[in-house]
Nucleic acid binder design. Structure first.
Lengths: 99, 99
DNA sequence: AATACCGGTAACCTGTAGGTTACTACAAAT
DNA sequence: ATTTGTAGTAACCTACAGGTTACCGGTATT
């Protein structure tokens, strides 16, 4: 869990999914994340080998992020977690927490 | 993940599993966790409804912790995570991290 | 030459998860 | 009376994940 844990990594991975997204697009999909934090997380995810960064020699500059094979292999796990999160058991907990 | 995340919660849940363990036994199974932290985590897990605490009116005092139904429903998810952690994909990442 | 677009970086700040160490409350056994 | 076993609590500390705000560097358009 120290690999894909933290506040943003699972969300970012989920946003990327099967697609290939630009920095700006990610920022737009997650308005609550700041430039700096997004940049950091993407760097870490790349270092961990969960995502791949492709820089296109265009203008204005363009960078796209996509899941690596390791990243893809993680998706079923994230889905399991998400579906537990949507289960009744988990929802009870969350509604208790909010009170 | 904010429910079962953190450094110790998944480990504690896994230690308890199907059994019913005393405070001291848990401490012994996880020598690296301090009394205070273990105590905190158990309280949180109980508040979250993932474990149940049973106090026996004996002497010396005796308290046993076991998984609640919610806790049990979480185990398959933890196992998924663990088995991803043992996959080749994840192991590569870990060996890179150690370097 | 100024402005806009894009993908960031620099400098700085803060709350809190997790840790250390020592102490406590209760009952039973010696 | 004092020691033992058990399950904690009190007081304190600290590193770091995550956040804010402002700025940078290259290119193309106006």
């Amino acid at each position: 869990m120290s690999i894909f844990g933290g506040k943003w990594k699972p969300i970012i991975l989920n946003c990327i999914g099967e697609s290939s997204l630009r920095f700006g697009k990610l920022n737009q999909l997650m308005p609550a994340i700041s430039n700096k934090v997004l940049s950091n997380e993407l760097k870490e995810l790349e270092t961990l080998g969960l995502i791949e960064r492709k820089e296109f020699k265009e203008s204005p500059q363009r960078v796209e992020y996509s899941l690596s094979d390791s990243g893809k292999s993680l998706m079923p796990v994230l889905h399991e977690i998400a579906s537990w999160g949507n289960s009744n058991q988990a929802k009870k907990i969350v509604t208790e927490m909010v009170k």
